[in-house]
């Protein structure tokens, strides 16, 4: 009966899960503060949406890496999941290029 130690389910430790949860809560508070506290929000100016996106990305990383277990999973599963985001990025970039390089044509007649 399987002595092969490759056949082991990794158990994510209880402490890791709790830690991740606390960090997620912290980031949530941070994103609300940077958006809703007027002094901070105005100080950020045009960077505000980027900061919000960055915090969301950090939270997303924690969920994907630890709760979904990608950090402890195979490289191929990580590539598979990343490919979804890559193609989404492609769709966004090219549609963006189209919409923001349109030149309004007026009637030449």
């Amino acid at each position: 009966m399987g002595q092969n130690h490759n056949h082991d389910h990794f158990v994510i430790p209880f402490k890791t899960l709790m830690n991740v949860c606390l960090w997620l809560c912290f980031y949530t508070v941070l994103t609300v503060v940077t958006a809703k506290v007027p002094v901070i929000h105005h100080a950020l100016g045009p960077l505000a949406p980027l900061v919000a996106f960055g915090i969301a990305a950090a939270k997303a990383y924690l969920v994907m890496a630890h709760f979904m277990g990608l950090k402890y999973d195979t490289k191929s599963n990580r590539i598979i999941f990343a490919s979804g985001f890559a193609f989404l990025g492609l769709l966004f970039i090219i549609v963006f290029i189209d919409i923001f390089t349109r030149v309004l044509q007026t009637n030449t007649l």
């Binding site: 999941f81 979804g84 985001f85 989404l88």
Partner: peptide
């Protein structure tokens, strides 16, 4: 692997809305 492939489709579907 099958589960992750299915999750990719969920990301793409929602992602279209986000785009």
């Amino acid at each position: 692997e099958g589960i992750w492939l299915f999750m990719v489709t969920e990301i793409l579907m929602f992602g279209g809305l986000f785009v």
